[in-house]
Design a protein around this nucleic acid. Structure first.
Length: 135
DNA sequence: TTCCTGACTCCAG
DNA sequence: CCTGGAGCCAGGA
């Protein structure tokens, strides 16, 4: 029973998760976020929550979105258009240079976008908790 | 210090 | 499918 409260122990969280009170080599967590996003293959997408879970359950999905605000000046470049919300909706499109840029970039990678929503989201979904666990 | 906001997500209805 | 409320954590006023 969940009782409406989020589980503290997430099955996808890793044993090496870093709560915010533990210092790490990369002291800013959006370096981690950018690092994960850079590894999303072309033509694939992931969600804010998936990244948050990969980095540790102590981080919320909102913080991933917050980190993405700095992604447009990060180097090397971060393919921010490959991160959508859990429904496949392009919730971050308003933060691109033009309202259509995010959709255009996705479409260029062969992803169909209709009404601000990614088609076949489930098939194209790239979960860092699964894909990066092979390393 | 408190209060509000947000590129989110989960649950209930 | 949609809506509303709660939880989430960092910044800014």
């Amino acid at each position: 029973m969940r009782k409406g409260k989020k589980l503290v122990t997430d099955p996808l969280s890793r044993s090496d998760k870093r709560p915010t009170d533990i210092p790490s080599n990369r002291d800013s967590f959006f370096e981690d976020v950018h690092d994960v996003v850079r590894q999303i293959p072309s033509g694939r997408i992931t969600s804010y929550g998936a990244i948050a879970r990969y980095l540790g359950s102590g981080l919320s999905a909102r913080m991933v979105g917050w980190a993405m605000n700095a992604s447009h000046v990060a180097l090397p470049p971060v393919p921010a258009h490959r991160v959508v919300n859990r429904n496949g909706i392009l919730s971050g499109k308003g933060h691109f240079a033009t309202p259509s840029e995010m959709e255009e970039l996705l479409r260029r990678e062969g992803i169909q976008v209709i009404n601000d929503k990614v088609i076949d989201f489930n098939t194209l979904f790239w979960d860092p908790g699964i894909e990066l666990s092979l390393f």
